[in-house]
């Protein structure tokens, strides 16, 4: 039996936000932000987030490493060096309800808005990719730059991936 669209959307949103929280925990961040939403979107079953990256010849797996590199390079700017294997910090406690950083909320709301403007009007990973590309500054923008990916080009690839059915 096919699920009603509203219920499909609720399930996708739950998977996206829960995945983003897990990504934030894994990275040792207090709250999920745009980079964690994007990493979570790669795991959504519709596959459009991954396909958007792959259309540019980029491997979604490289994005995670690029985020860590972006943070390490930012610390080097102030003379702080963190070794690659410094992953011994305990994870932050999980919150009871879904909470995000302010840029994370912006990206999520933009993704939902984009999903309402496409047919079928269901949230998919490609909408998250297109939404993060709207962020001019921040960790995602710097990580994408480090990967040699232009945000406008990635946004176009996300729209193409969403159009491929």
């Amino acid at each position: 039996m096919k699920l009603p669209r509203a219920l499909q959307d609720v399930r996708t949103i739950e998977a996206l936000l829960t995945g983003a929280e897990a990504e934030a925990q894994r990275a040792g961040d207090d709250l999920p932000g745009p980079e964690h939403l994007l990493l979570s979107a790669f795991g959504l079953p519709d596959g459009t987030a991954r396909r958007a990256f792959e259309r540019l010849g980029a491997d979604p797996a490289d994005f995670r490493a690029a985020v860590e590199t972006a943070h390490r390079q930012a610390l080097q700017y102030v003379g702080v060096t963190v070794p690659d294997n410094a992953g011994e910090f305990p994870p932050p406690p999980l919150g009871g309800v879904h909470r995000m950083t302010a840029p994370g909320q912006e990206v999520f709301q933009a993704a939902v808005k984009l999903s309402k403007a496409t047919k079928p009007s269901l949230l998919r990973g490609g909408h998250v990719v297109a939404a993060v590309c709207g962020q001019e500054h921040g960790t995602v923008a710097r990580a994408l730059t480090a990967l040699g990916i232009e945000r406008s080009v990635l946004a176009a690839a996300a729209r193409e991936a969403l159009a491929d059915r």
């Binding site: 972006a70 943070h71 390079q73 930012a74 610390l75 700017y77 102030v78 702080v80 960790t139 710097r142």
Partner: peptide, 8 residues
Amino acid sequence: AAVVALRR
């Protein structure tokens, strides 16, 4: 970016 990374 350094401020974000330091806070983290």
